[in-house]
Simulated scan of single mutants.
Amino acid sequence: MNTFLLFAACSSLCTLVGALPSLVVRNISHRGKDVLLAYTAGIMVAASTYGLLPSALKLSNLYVLTAGVLFGTLLLTAMELYIPHTDPSHTEGPEEGKQSLLLVAMLLHNLPEGLSTGISLASGAAETGKLVATAIGLQNIPEGFLVSLFLITRKAGAAKAFLYSLAIAAAEWAASCLGYYFGTELSVLVPYGLAFAGGAMLYVVYKELLPESHGDGNEIPATFAFILGTLTMIGLVDLLG
């Protein structure tokens, strides 16, 4: 439990850590944003393919892995289709009255990340849990920075941007607790949960992060950033393994 509390809290609070520089840095180029998003995508892909999915397969079989990945993908698809929200953009952002929709969008992105952390830490595979928590924490830093910067540049104010980041971090931590509960009290669901979390993370990468990072003509630096992000997580896997 102590390990869970430490890693889950640190992973969630990385959103706030990322938001802090945006209070000072008010101008970042499209290329810089694209590079951050692509680096984040590489981290998440490696965490899923080197941590979550192999662990799910080790604890179960290919059928369980397939069911979990498809369920995660279908659930996030349904959330995208039926829950009103707007995604952050590099161009003209939402009007002030639509800022709450941005918060909903980021919550949609962070809930599966919190579940991933909780389920992984409850899985009994300490290395996998720590790896996934570290990966999500690392990707929360640029995500928190970009969301906070997005809000500040849309005249939301530093205080409101910080409160939004705090709400996102709190929601992710709550999702981590839920994932940990399912992983400890309903251990039979752990491989399904790991596969679900892996599928959800891959969905977020392909549906949100990669298209966004390739939207301003910065495909080449974004591609290198994606590869570096992947290598960063592979390096962490090697260190933790």
Rank of each mutant, 00 (worst) to 15 (best):
K33G: 07
L59C: 14
T40S: 14
M44Y: 00
A47S: 13
D34T: 07
G32S: 01
K58F: 12
S55A: 15
K33A: 06
G42T: 11
T49P: 03
K58N: 11
R31L: 08
G32F: 02
I43S: 11
D34I: 00
M44S: 14
V35K: 00
K58E: 09
G42Y: 00
I43P: 10
S60I: 10
Y39R: 04
L59E: 09
L52N: 05
L59I: 00
P54Q: 03
A47P: 15
L52A: 12
L37C: 09
Y50G: 14
K33S: 14
D34R: 02
A38Q: 02
A46N: 14
D34L: 09
L52I: 03
K58C: 07
R31C: 05
H30I: 07
G32H: 00
K33D: 07
V35F: 04
L36P: 15
V45L: 11
G51T: 00
L57M: 13
P54E: 08
A46H: 07
S60Y: 06
R31Q: 05
P54W: 04
A46K: 07
Y39G: 14
A38C: 02
I43Q: 01
G42L: 07
D34N: 15
A56P: 05
T40P: 12
A47Y: 01
L53P: 12
G32C: 03
V45M: 08
D34C: 03
A56G: 10
Y39K: 08
A41N: 11
V45G: 03
S48P: 04
L53F: 07
L36V: 05
D34P: 11
T49L: 15
L53G: 03
L59V: 10
K33M: 12
L53E: 12
L37R: 15
T49G: 13
T49F: 12
L57A: 06
L36H: 02
A47L: 03
V35H: 02
L52S: 11
T40K: 06
T49W: 07
S48N: 11
P54H: 13
L52K: 09
S60W: 06
S48M: 08
L37D: 02
G32K: 00
A41R: 13
A41P: 07
V45E: 00
G51N: 01
L37P: 02
P54V: 14
P54T: 04
A56D: 08
H30M: 06
L57C: 04
G51W: 04
A41L: 04
L37F: 12
S60L: 02
V45P: 01
L36A: 05
Y39S: 01
Y50K: 15
S60E: 12
G51E: 04
Y39I: 14
G42V: 13
M44N: 01
Y50P: 04
M44A: 06
Y50V: 00
A47E: 09
G42P: 15
M44L: 06
A38S: 15
L36Y: 07
S60H: 14
K58W: 09
A56F: 08
L57Y: 11
A56S: 15
A46L: 09
T40N: 15
A41W: 03
L57I: 11
H30T: 01
Y50W: 10
A46T: 09
L52P: 13
L59A: 09
T49D: 12
R31K: 11
H30A: 08
S60C: 13
R31H: 05
L52R: 09
T40A: 15
V35N: 10
G51H: 01
G51P: 10
G32P: 01
T40L: 10
A41D: 09
S48Y: 02
V45N: 14
